[in-house]
């Protein structure tokens, strides 16, 4: 800090907080995908292609997730159809 800066006071932009918030979001997202089987992205693409034969939907309107319980796994498919 130079002589003049000392009197101007500290800058208020706290970049560490921005870093922390960004990290919390991306890490939470990646942890969610960590246990997912490898075939999931391709399955999502192919499902999207099938649905598009009938209804025009965008990429983010199909969500595929696998929920693992102790005795079984559930493949959860969530398709949002556009409003008519």
């Amino acid at each position: 800090m130079s002589f003049l800066d000392y009197f101007k006071g500290k800058k208020s932009n706290n970049t560490a907080n921005v870093a922390k918030e960004r990290l919390q979001i991306i890490v939470a997202h990646e942890r969610g995908q960590r246990d997912q089987p490898d075939y999931l992205p391709q399955l999502q693409q192919e499902l999207l292609a099938v649905i598009r034969k009938y209804v025009q939907i965008s990429d983010d309107m199909v969500q595929v997730e696998v929920d693992r319980n102790e005795s079984c796994s559930i493949l959860e498919l969530n398709v949002t159809l556009p409003e008519r």
Binding site: K10, N13, N14, T15, A16, N17, A19, K20, L23, Q24
Partner: peptide, 16 residues
Amino acid sequence: RVERGEMLSVADVEEI
């Protein structure tokens, strides 16, 4: 740099 808000703190990294 942590004290100036320019670097993630120990607590931040531990929390994440």
